[in-house]
Nucleic acid binder design. Structure first.
Lengths: 337, 337
DNA sequence: CTGAAAGCGCTTACAG
DNA sequence: CTGAAAGCGCTTACAG
């Protein structure tokens, strides 16, 4: 037999398919005689019966599936988050479908349509695209949880506490004696980029070390963009002794730009990243950075979504949970010469 | 209206739902009058109708979904492969569901059951667990393609050409003048680990530089395991001037072990990895390694699976496609002192 | 060219 | 405690 169905099991056990359904569902097995349940379970096992989740989903109007939108799996920042989400969902037997959007609105829209067609019960959004101005594109009467992205509207979100992380960085650099600190900001259409840039300017201003000229925005969170931005920054602000990059990829690019100018890290320029990506501890020099609890973010986001899925009465005000980071001091920072 | 169905569209367009189905399917729209098609399409758009993939899948017995088993998304080796698979599947509107198994047979079995329950049309297996001895666990009348894992049985596979990659390494090291080359082998229950170890011993033997004592097997493809294995290797074979690690993670661990002994790379020990993981070009020193075409492997695996899905007549003998790697020479290798 | 009917594999009121 | 029926949203022979 190719794929035994419930009715095959029913035939073999000599009962109705509704009885099979009840026997195989822990929630309803109680209404049956133990003997019946045993007979059905035995028949199911003998046939190698596997429930059809599609059929069940169609009938119950719940696919037990959740969709997740991320920019790019290939960006090392995301895998730990996705893993956290999966591990959280697994506890409730939900399946995750992740879609890469490359932060392309067209792809994002397509992915969203695909997920909706697949009847996902909820959505996790980790794309960094900011859509505050446009009409809210995710008003699809589906529970949504934002990850690593601030809520413009009515969705709860799990984000790193960027402001706290930036404070750690500024404090560290000031403590080392730096007075000229530049910033490679992340893309302006990115909540993460903006939040970190804002936090930096506020805190650096408060500390009296802020020079608005010494901030350069990278158009993408990527190595090459970081290199270019940093190159321009160094050109414009040769007095800098320290640079805070809005993420590790940018910092790596910055490292290259610094070297290309014949300068050394940390001797001439101290460098700080953000995220603590895998392997940045093995760079030359090992990168000082802010560790973001990626896995935890994913796990908590998954749990939050599960909670919303369980309680249709979504009365709770959409919260923005901020998870604190920690400064990992390595050898890319030192006192200024 | 919460979620318009085909019958809502039918009502609005004043036709039967079967007509809606035909009008919305490019393959069958031709049998309808253009005017009818237009009316239906208009109604569908007006209502914001989205087809229900679950219902369609139940009816057509094709979920248009593919499952993929990988050990751990958090291992940087896999994201590019997964991305390649997704990009290939996307061209045919297939959705990918990936499951992490941590190489735990129990998890693997659970994931497999989940995927089957979700009615995946095919399966990509990238878990490294070797199951040659056990009964073939993937004999599930489903098209299967193996990725980065050699076929023990009847499934086609896309793998890196390890033997060719190892040849590149041995040649490079010999060319530099090394005569004492050790090997940190990958887990023995891993086809990748075994293949590379075998290739190394054969080729090193042929070159007259093989010492069977100077091979240490790591129980896991991980940094810490690499460190330990390398430490034992160095203890046993102090004469080594070069070490080939079966993958980059192991090489990174090896780097640590070498340093812990007060030795330098490449001055005292040359080190070569395998895979060219992201960021290993930024290590200290940048790692010489073999680049494996991960994305391409994924993409080709996806295409192969698609082909098998399209042609039920799976007559073609299961092929093992070997994709060649390339040696990326960086600064972790040098002539022996 | 289009409609009516059956059915994919389940679950769940409704009876008894 | 269990069966029979209806229906989830589609597709697809079968008629006409």
């Amino acid at each position: 037999m190719a794929k035994p169905t419930m009715s095959d099991v029913a035939t073999r056990a000599g009962v109705d398919v509704s009885t099979v359904s009840r026997a195989l569902n822990p929630k309803t097995a109680g209404m049956l005689r133990t003997e019946t349940v045993e007979r059905v379970v035995g028949a199911a096992r003998a046939l190698g019966y596997r429930p059809n989740a599609l059929a069940r989903g169609l009938r119950t109007q719940r696919s037990h599936t959740v969709g997740m939108l991320i920019p790019d799996l290939t960006n090392p920042f995301f895998p730990p988050i996705v893993r956290g989400v999966e591990d959280a969902l697994e506890t409730a037997d939900y399946t995750l479908i992740v879609a890469n959007t490359d932060n392309d609105p067209r792809r994002e829209e397509r992915s969203l349509q695909t997920l909706i067609a697949r009847q996902v019960d909820g959505l996790l959004i980790a794309t960094s695209h900011v859509d505050g101005d446009e009409e809210e594109p995710f008003d699809l009467s589906l529970p949504v949880v934002l990850v690593n992205r601030r809520s413009g509207r009515a969705h709860p979100s799990i984000v790193p506490d960027d402001s706290q992380g930036v404070a750690l960085v500024v404090e560290h650099l000031l403590g080392l004696g730096h007075r000229h600190v530049g910033h490679i900001a992340g893309p302006a259409d990115t909540s993460t980029g903006r939040t970190r840039a804002t936090a930096f300017s506020e805190q650096a201003t408060k500390a009296g070390v802020f020079d608005p000229r010494c901030v350069q925005t990278a158009p993408l969170f990527a190595v090459e963009e970081g290199r270019q931005a940093c190159d321009e920054l160094l050109e414009r602000c040769p007095e800098l002794t320290a640079i805070f990059a809005a993420n590790d990829l940018l910092a790596v690019g910055c490292l290259r730009a610094v070297r290309a100018r014949g300068l050394r890290v940390p001797d001439d320029i101290s460098l700080v990243g953000f995220n603590d990506m895998p392997l940045v501890d093995l760079l030359d020099p090992p990168l000082t950075t802010v560790r973001v609890p990626q896995y935890d973010m994913g796990f908590q986001a998954g749990q939050l979504l599960l909670a919303r899925l369980a309680t249709p009465a979504v009365s709770a005000a959409p919260a923005a949970v901020e998870l604190p980071g920690s400064l990992i001091v390595r050898r890319s920072t030192a006192a200024p010469a």
